[in-house]
Write a protein that binds this DNA or RNA. Sequence first.
DNA 1: ATTTCATAATTGGTTCTACCAATTTGTAAA
DNA 2: TTTACAAATTGGTAGAACCAATTATGAAAT
Lengths: 248, 248
Amino acid sequence: MAEKRLYHTVANQILELIDSGVFPTGSRLPGERDLAKKFGVSRVAVREAEIALQAQGRLEIKVGSGAYVLDGSKGSHNGLPKVGPFELTEARALFEAESAALAAPIITDDAIAELENYIGIMSGKVKSEMTPDDADAAFHNAIARATNNHAIIFVIDSMWKMRKEAAQLQKVYRCVCEKDSSHREDEHQAILTALKNRDSSAARQAMRAHFTRMIEALLEASEEEAYQEVKRQASESRSRYMLAKQLS
Amino acid sequence: MAEKRLYHTVANQILELIDSGVFPTGSRLPGERDLAKKFGVSRVAVREAEIALQAQGRLEIKVGSGAYVLDGSKGSHNGLPKVGPFELTEARALFEAESAALAAPIITDDAIAELENYIGIMSGKVKSEMTPDDADAAFHNAIARATNNHAIIFVIDSMWKMRKEAAQLQKVYRCVCEKDSSHREDEHQAILTALKNRDSSAARQAMRAHFTRMIEALLEASEEEAYQEVKRQASESRSRYMLAKQLS
DNA sequence: ATTTCATAATTGGTTCTACCAATTTGTAAA
DNA sequence: TTTACAAATTGGTAGAACCAATTATGAAAT
């Protein structure tokens, strides 16, 4: 929690008070002078902290009135929305399939070798400092890069970041991944084979199958245990998923 | 250029000096005291401006040393990459087609009515405060919202923002859109019809056709006049586009 | 001539005081 | 009750002063 600049620690203290519900969304913060006294720092430090929070979109400062807490739930600090596991996987199924299809005809041999390496890391056959999860991310990112399309690269990266963000999502994914790590390897291999053959349709199909299986695993996991929140989302998304499956 | 808070104007002044090459990437800015004197403001104002720029990732401040200009070329102020017209349109062709396909089976009648309204605005038959371009954006955004998938909404919105960013892109698009406004109307109508029929495949196809035609218009435009920069990109992308066309 | 190292100068970090301007609040008059 | 004006509160800006980290300087040692 100790930061380099004083205003960082102050900003974090304010953030904590916001997250703990002391300052709910929409409420007005105490004046700069009060906060300075409360935190035992100068008014300038509080001011800089509030400016930084404003730049992050967490506060709105009105002159002569005060600083107000903005809704930090969506479009939070890095501009990414918070998404549920189902909708994210659904989106990835669609977009990554197109990414792979576009990459297939033009992927280089170097990129193919890179993908093989990542599969090796994920299966544990190749030792590396990368975690299997990092290798998984690198695998999908490398395919996006193979499209040579910066917009596509951005989209794929963004979705991976969304996945990394939600702590809850992390748990669910970890569970699903551990359970089906062998499936995952086969599926990645199938994707690689399709790319090796420069077969667009096969690549699209393999990538869709990869995520379709993941959605099924998520559905299964949502039946178990304490995934109540996921369960709620599951009921919302299941019908859509079934429909989406038809048009694969 | 006149902002509400003084540190905003100072930040913009600094940004201008950076963009105009006075302070190249990696160089050190003059001290806070010097800048304060140069801009005729207090040191506090300069300081707050630099903090805001640091929050935006444009500066790195080292204590006792100075403020250094960071590379603002990629992942710039809003986290969006700078993309060329071809790659962006290519990505939109793929992703928006899937968005429409997913929306088709579940789109509500209200959303259909909304889309009809936007088409009316674009054709000038319905009067509104919206510009045709805004209506165009709203049209595609509404389809994304119809998917009820926040990740997809984010992606479609992001790509629209990328389009709005590049000034050069703006020029080209405007040229293309003006020339083929009638085509655009027909294409949007076709997309709407497919959605009305809840026909996923038709929606996908119609959306692809919409962007495929746009790419062709871009290629044509790049042949003309002074679009040298676009031309360069065109030669890079043309082969990819041809390949992508095959797998439509 | 080169290296080393203590010192001075520079730079950002923090605090304090003071005053200005916009906003809100409170109160008295209509 | 409503209106109008004044006072209190709040953020905005300025200047000076001092601290701590960094960098530049220059004399002394090699």
